[in-house]
Amino acid sequence: MLPEEIRHRLETRIAASAHPRELVVDVMYELQNHYGFLNDVALREVAELLQLTPLEVEELATFYDFIYRRPVGRFVLHVCDGVVCWMFEEQSALDYICKLLGVAPGETTPDGQFTVLPTVCVGYCDHAPAMLINGKLYGPLTPEFIDRTLEELRSISCDLVLCR
């Protein structure tokens, strides 16, 4: 169940909007950040808040790559596989991260800390190879840099949510 505070805030925004449907991505983000991912419960709540059908929300949720319909870890690593990053590592950064964390691309570590997702060019080509962790850009990646960064993240206790 969505906490009353979030529900109230969203309902107020929706009521004030001339075109409530415009807010659907924002509402999906909000519920995703609350639940960790956009689970079926959350999806139905989005639909209810915006007077859409679950199908109509699903049509959008399954279109976008930053909406997660399956569980993700505390940190989502969007590893860029754009052509510029590829030129520097030809997927070996992704391979390295996956090996380091012991997961396949798209999977989450058993401790629920990290999800690794290959992603399109993140627009950090001047710092290639690059990745995005919860919406924050990191680069240029080297094995040492990755080791250090993931180690630091493990020790962070607060949620670092820009945009998962």
Binding site: L52, T53, L55, E56, E58, E59, T62, F63
Partner: peptide, 9 residues
């Protein structure tokens, strides 16, 4: 009607 649509990409 709003229960059949297109999903994915």
């Amino acid at each position: 009607y709003r229960d059949l649509g297109v999903m994915g990409i």
